[in-house]
């Protein structure tokens, strides 16, 4: 085993050693702060030194903490689980804490996600997004009375909706969807992902109600299957596939 470990150590060392020097990163950030500059947004550029293994979030913190304290962004967990820091990086929706400096240096553009009202710098109004979420009845519906122990569910039944349980409500998908940008009525992919999570849960009895909601004019049939949402999802959820499955369910039920 020892030689084995030695080999690995060497590759890891090399990776680390190659990564130890700082690199220069220029961040071009879209700013908006009506208290300072009225209703027009503007661009700011900051050049900082960063470890290539740092996250973009660390770089934004460096800007905020040592260059411009007024820069506003949301963040919490810093490792891609809480869903706070969805931003557009070089035109693509990403979580700032899941993008590494080495992948974007020497220069990157950071903007707020699209399709939701910007409130300040990288902070957008998430309320319309959560409204869509709430509209699909995102909770288990089952009035059949609870057993003394757990309800049984086979591993296969559990697997059926596994993918959509990963959703962290970050809005990367919804705010990369051209239909959502263009049409305020569309609930957007994230809400459908959340509905999918229950519709395909063998314990749930609310599928009909949810499918009815999603068959409505603001629902799934707005989707034009462009796959932007799947590409954007930081949790690797097959968003478009989930939407297709919901569509199929509605068609089979002939709503």
């Amino acid at each position: 085993m020892a030689t084995d470990v030695g080999d690995v150590l060497e590759t890891s060392d090399r990776r680390r050693a190659g990564a130890s020097g700082k690199v220069t990163l220029t961040l071009r950030i879209r700013r908006y702060n009506p208290e300072l500059r009225g209703e027009e947004s503007w661009w700011d550029e900051f050049t900082i030194q960063a470890d290539p293994n740092d996250r973009l979030l660390d770089a934004l913190h460096e800007v905020k903490w040592h260059h411009d304290g007024t820069l506003a962004l949301r963040r919490s967990c810093a490792h891609g689980i809480c869903g706070s820091d969805a931003v557009m990086v070089n035109g693509r929706n990403r979580l700032a804490c899941k993008v590494l400096v080495r992948d974007i240096a020497p220069k990157a553009t950071v903007e707020p996600i699209r399709g939701l009202p910007v409130l300040k710098d990288l902070i957008v109004d998430m309320e319309p997004f959560f409204e869509g979420y709430r509209s699909v009845l995102p909770y288990l519906i089952n009035d059949e009375g609870e057993p003394d122990r757990e309800r049984l569910q086979s591993p296969e039944e559990r697997q059926r909706y596994d993918d959509t349980t990963k959703c962290i409500l970050c809005a990367c998908c919804t705010t990369s969807c051209p239909i959502f940008w263009g049409d305020e009525g569309y609930v957007g992919p994230a809400a459908i992902v959340q509905a999918h999570r229950f519709i395909f849960d063998s314990r749930d009895r609310g599928a009909r109600e949810r499918l009815q909601i999603l068959a409505d004019k603001t629902g799934v049939f707005r989707c034009r299957t462009t796959f932007n949402c799947t590409d954007a999802c930081p949790r690797g959820i097959e968003v478009t596939k989930a939407i297709q499955e919901v569509k199929r369910e509605i068609l089979l039920d002939r709503f």
Binding site: D162, T165, D201
Partner: peptide
């Protein structure tokens, strides 16, 4: 009972 998707 509230729907938590435990592994089975």
């Amino acid at each position: 009972h509230w729907g938590l998707p435990f592994n089975r």
